[in-house]
Simulated assay, not measured.
Amino acid sequence: MPRRTAAIAAATTAFALGAIGPAQAANTTLSTSWGSMTHIDSGDHFKVCDTRVDGFAVTGGVQEYWPLQGTWHEASPWILVDGGDAGCSGEGDFNVEEGAKYRLKLCLANHDGEPGCVYKVFYE
């Protein structure tokens, strides 16, 4: 009886670990009080939204992690911009590769002109 219990426990653990691995892709959203950026997995579509009517634009991009260098690099061929008004007008498509580690990069220029950025990691 103990062998059977151990086998069931091992199978359950293996199933659970496989079910939560990074290969499971889904939509990812990075939200702040001043804007948001969303990766829509179906079609690898990205959207940047400005949530404040304050005259400052928000920008968004995608970065890929390069494990051999241990650094992040700009991956998307564009910087999405949605600016000054509340709404979502910054949109673009970018094919993210399966198994790679990416992060959304959302920035807001402050009053001194320097951007303040936030990030959220996602996997395809």
Rank of each mutant, 00 (worst) to 15 (best):
F15W: 07
W78K: 06
V48P: 02
G60E: 00
Y102M: 11
G90M: 09
T12I: 10
G35V: 00
G116Q: 11
T51D: 02
N27A: 07
T5H: 09
S89Y: 09
R103C: 13
T32R: 06
F122S: 13
V118N: 07
L68W: 05
L68T: 08
W78F: 15
G61R: 06
F56N: 08
E91G: 06
A100P: 08
H39S: 09
A9D: 08
Y102N: 11
F122G: 13
E74K: 09
T71P: 03
G70F: 05
P67L: 01
V118K: 09
V48E: 01
E91I: 10
A6E: 10
L104M: 14
R103P: 13
T12P: 02
G70K: 06
N110D: 15
A26S: 11
G18M: 08
I20M: 13
P67E: 03
K101Q: 15
I20V: 14
A19M: 14
T51C: 00
V121G: 00
S42I: 06
A14F: 05
T5K: 13
L106V: 12
A9R: 13
D50K: 00
H45N: 10
A26K: 11
D93N: 07
V58F: 00
E124P: 15
G84T: 11
I40D: 03
F15N: 10
D44V: 12
T29A: 11
Q69T: 10
A75Y: 15
N27M: 01
G113R: 01
H111M: 10
D41R: 04
L104P: 08
N110I: 02
T51Y: 01
T59P: 01
L104T: 11
H39G: 04
F122L: 08
I8A: 11
T51E: 01
L80K: 10
E64I: 14
V118M: 08
L108I: 15
A6V: 03
A16W: 12
H39C: 06
T71N: 12
A9V: 14
Q69D: 09
D44G: 14
G21I: 00
V48A: 08
T32V: 02
T38M: 13
T59F: 06
G61P: 04
G99V: 05
W78A: 08
V96C: 09
A6S: 07
G113C: 03
E114Y: 14
D85C: 04
T32Q: 09
A109I: 14
S42Y: 06
D112G: 12
D41M: 03
T28I: 09
G18E: 04
L106R: 10
L106Y: 12
Y123V: 11
M1N: 09
K101T: 15
K120Q: 15
L17E: 07
H111S: 13
C88L: 00
L30I: 04
D44R: 03
G55S: 02
V96L: 11
H39Y: 12
G116D: 15
G84Q: 13
E114M: 13
G21M: 02
P67F: 02
G55V: 04
